[in-house]
Amino acid sequence: MKLEITTSGEFKMVKVNGRIDTTRAVEFESAVVSLIDQGCKNLIINCFDLNYISSSGLRVFLVLQKRLSGQQGIFRLCCLQPEIQEIFDISGFSTIFQIFPTEEAALAGEK
């Protein structure tokens, strides 16, 4: 798993490349939580290159959502591949998260 972190206006954009499974979830969580600890309130996770996620990864997304909504922040996801979207649908996570088709849409907050 690789993470690319950029800033776009009021948002931090985290591009995930690879897999978020049980062995990698902790690394993913600590990297993103440290952004929030450093004051990031608005976060977009770009999932274009995310090709696998298990319940450990979904758990981290839920943690981030709770964390950011607890401090009136914004948490958005974009560019999910169909296989990943399906896992989100099955888990009921598609309705919990704000999911956008493109980075631009996620930044604008318009579906």
Binding site: S54, R59, I96
Partner: peptide
């Protein structure tokens, strides 16, 4: 798990077995 709950009410975890069944 109840997958209709909002994020705030959703327990962390308990999803693994459910995913297998689905």
């Amino acid at each position: 798990p109840d997958i209709t709950l909002a994020a705030e009410d959703r327990p962390i975890g308990g999803l693994g077995i459910f995913l297998i069944k689905k």
